[in-house]
Nucleic acid binder design. Structure first.
Lengths: 222, 222
DNA sequence: ATATTTAATATTGTATACAATATGTAAAAG
DNA sequence: CTTTTACATATTGTATACAATATTAAATAT
């Protein structure tokens, strides 16, 4: 197996993406090409190309001659993104559920118990979020809808910042842990319709929690 | 009003996009940076940046050190894209329908009659597709879901090539013209659920027509 | 003749340099 | 004093030049 040779543009994109997702670069903050270039020891060309990629991912807003800024999602935008996620993730689940094997379900359950352990231990760093994503991903894994998957992944990444913030401020995921168990059980018994409806509700609930928090923060900033 | 100063990157992106959508550049064809640059009288930098943008739009596939190619959609991908469109457009309609004014509906009807005239005249060029898009867009216009709109627009652009091909080969839109009338009527009478279901069926039907054609062509190519 | 290695060519990736545009500041006009 | 204009600075956009990688063709070995 040959060494993967990553291009500078890719490395720069990863670096900047990480800065945005961790909040090191905050929403609305301008991203100066020259500054990023010298910081990362590259020329401005790969920085520009990375910024263009990040724009496609929705993490950056690019305006001709004015430069790039980290995107700042309004409450309304968060709202819409989560609605989209609910719609698309339910679509994925509906196509996946019939093809989930015992093995898949067992793996999902394993991830779930790890998640529960982390939550009980009062974990507030990113592990909780990761496990949560992986649990969901496992349930969608047999959908065979690559483009839909890509979309969902994009929106997840996009809302990740806010979910992390929420985990941090609320001291963990607020969604009741038994919701995941219920969802898993509905998948195991192949109750497709119910599982999808439940999933939608689950995502919309998460949205409402985050939105409340966000509105509070927006309010405090005045 | 100041003169709009478009950047070379934007102009190049438009040029290449047009070439792909009209079929002048076919799916799978490689896009040489140097060739495009000299053809369009710019350096390779704006060409590269344009290609990155087009990749985000799904029209181009970019591989490090290997270059870009126009994307070639398989029957399976077309299938998935149209399913996504059905899902997302129904979502838009469901949010828009209650807020459609008499004015909106009248405008939609006007577009529709133009479309019918074009179809009866046996129009096979892009006007038919344009009017069709505009009719649908009008119905979604009050959804106030900008990100969903953007997604739908992207997928429409992406499938445009195939719709055009279909119109050309089948001698026009094959969807029964009365379907549009039915849809409009359901919107006028605010039968949200029925309208959305009907719309989904409408889009899936179009998909099946195109897929049949596509599979035939793929078959002929051997 | 086929497969493998090596050199030549083509093509992409990135740095540097310069041009165009936008932003900020000081002088001039009202 | 406020507004406008002209200038200086900062920042982005693009061309050119060079470096790195991939592809092709030729040479060698099996």
């Amino acid at each position: 197996m040959a060494i993967e040779h990553k291009t500078r543009t890719q490395l720069v994109a990863e670096a900047i993406r990480e800065k945005i997702l961790t909040g090191e670069i905050k929403g609305g903050e301008p991203l100066r090409q020259a500054a990023l270039a010298s910081e990362l020891n590259v020329s401005r060309i790969p920085v520009r190309e990375a910024l263009l990629q990040l724009e496609a991912e929705g993490l950056v807003h690019f305006e001709a001659h004015k430069g790039a800024t980290a995107t700042q999602l309004s409450a309304a935008q968060i709202d819409e993104i989560f609605d989209l996620r609910a719609l698309l993730e339910a679509e994925l689940l509906s196509h996946s559920i019939a093809h989930l094997s015992e093995q898949d379900l067992a793996e999902a359950e394993h991830i779930l118990s790890q998640l529960e352990t982390a939550m009980n231990a009062g974990d507030t760093h990113s592990a909780t979020g990761d496990l949560n994503s992986r649990f969901h991903a496992k349930l969608y894994s047999r959908a065979e809808r690559p483009q839909t998957r890509e979309l969902v992944d994009m929106y997840c990444k996009n809302s990740e910042r806010y979910v992390r913030m929420h985990i941090l401020l609320a001291g963990g995921l607020t969604t009741a842990p038994e919701e995941h168990r219920t969802l898993l059980e509905l998948c195991r018994t192949k109750k497709t319709r119910k599982a999808c409806d439940f999933l939608k509700k689950h995502i919309v609930e998460a949205k409402n929690d985050i939105k409340k928090l966000l509105i509070k923060i927006e309010h405090e900033q005045r």
